[in-house]
């Protein structure tokens, strides 16, 4: 019997090895271990054995059963993992094929840069103010210390509205919002005002009759020119990185005194001088200054008590610098192949 058992074990193992399908394994299990299986058949003959032999053979038989079961289990697992491996291999795809897109648009580059600037200023405690684009002479010029006959009016090429005796016009600068804000709010004031402005400039690569400015205004007790410099320094370092340098040049605007123009170190050469900055090392960026006492007075704020600064920057120039856009017209043509890039 011992030999029979050993033979069964050897045969079972041999057939298991040869087996390649999980289904066939089931047949093997029934054949060897089932109620009518070969092992059972042998165990049925146990009664014929002597009392000494019985426990030995019994032990052996159990051992054989356990071995075959173990082998079966291993075989099932190995077949399963083979099958899994084969399936995985078969399911392999070309991961370089393009992804599927849900529709998703883009913000206009003017909005993108404007948002960036808004966020920086909001972080510094500036509210956002709005004002009318079609405004009156008082808010755009007169209250800003540009009385009628002021020669600086010539530089602004104003569009006037028909039938209003040149009293209603398209604002030439967002500085008009300064006046609206000061008329309606007592200091402390800390605002920026982004918006459209209009000047009678023919369209070319760097001019447009409509463009965007961002005005800034701060009024409080004890505001200094040093604060103006600090604010603009921080803005530019956040926008253009810590390495950029600002240069403040005296200039003239009727609504600020002192007035300055602010240049930024050339993006291309960093201040050394190159063809892009016409060997200057700097590029003109914005106008700024301390709010003129007459402007404060015009808006009902006592210049002996309060002081403040204001600045106005051209958004198009910043956008063009940021993305190396060389033609302003692209911003208003809105070709989707252009818009997609931002």
């Amino acid at each position: 019997m011992k030999e029979q058992l050993e033979k069964i074990e050897a045969q079972a193992k041999q057939e298991l090895d040869a087996c390649t399908e999980i289904k066939a394994l089931d047949d093997l299990r029934i054949r060897f271990l089932g109620k009518k299986g070969e092992l059972t058949a042998i165990l049925k003959q146990m009664g014929k054995l002597s009392a000494e032999e019985r426990p030995i053979i019994g032990q052996l038989a159990n051992q054989v059963r356990a071995d075959i079961e173990e082998a079966l289990k291993n075989k099932i697992e190995s077949l399963k993992s083979e099958a899994q491996a084969a399936k995985i291999k078969e399911e392999s795809i070309d991961i370089t094929l393009p992804g599927k897109h849900a529709p998703f648009g883009k913000l206009h580059p003017l909005t993108k840069v404007e948002n960036e600037i808004r966020e920086i200023f909001m972080g510094m405690g500036f509210d956002i103010a709005d004002g009318p684009e079609v405004d009156d002479d008082y808010h755009v010029f007169e209250a800003l210390n540009l009385p009628p006959d002021h020669p600086a009016r010539d530089t602004q090429d104003t569009f006037y509205i028909e039938g209003t005796d040149e009293t209603i016009l398209l604002r030439t600068q967002t500085s008009s919002v300064q006046v609206h804000v000061m008329e309606n709010q007592k200091p402390p004031i800390r605002i920026i005002s982004p918006g459209r402005v209009f000047r009678s400039d023919a369209v070319d690569a760097t001019h447009s009759p409509l463009f965007h400015q961002i005005e800034g205004l701060v009024i409080d007790k004890g505001i200094t020119m040093s604060d103006l410099k600090g604010t603009l320094d921080m803005l530019m370092k956040k926008l253009y990185g810590a390495d950029c340098k600002l240069r403040f040049r005296p200039h003239h605007f009727p609504f600020t005194e002192p007035s300055c123009e602010v240049d930024i170190s050339c993006f291309n050469c960093g201040g050394e001088g190159c063809s892009m900055c016409k060997d200057e090392g700097y590029i003109e960026l914005l106008g700024a200054g301390m709010v003129h006492p007459k402007v404060l007075e015009n808006c009902g704020i006592d210049p002996e008590v309060y002081s403040g600064f204001a600045f106005g920057l051209g958004l198009e120039r910043m956008v063009m610098g940021r993305y190396d856009i060389n033609d302003l017209r692209l911003l208003y043509e809105n070709d989707v192949r252009f818009l997609e890039q931002f």
């Binding site: 200023f121 909001m122 972080g123 510094m124 405690g125 500036f126 509210d127 956002i128 402390p188 800390r190 200094t224 020119m225 040093s226 604060d227 410099k229 600090g230 604010t231 320094d233 921080m234 240069r247 403040f248 040049r249 005296p250 005194e257 002192p258 007035s259 300055c260 301390m290």
Partner: peptide
Amino acid sequence: AEEVARIYGYNNIPSSDFRGVAKAEF
């Protein structure tokens, strides 16, 4: 003040840290 500043040099005026104290919101 402007006359003094431009001869003194605008770029010699220090930059002060002008931080947010007022609260800003949309």
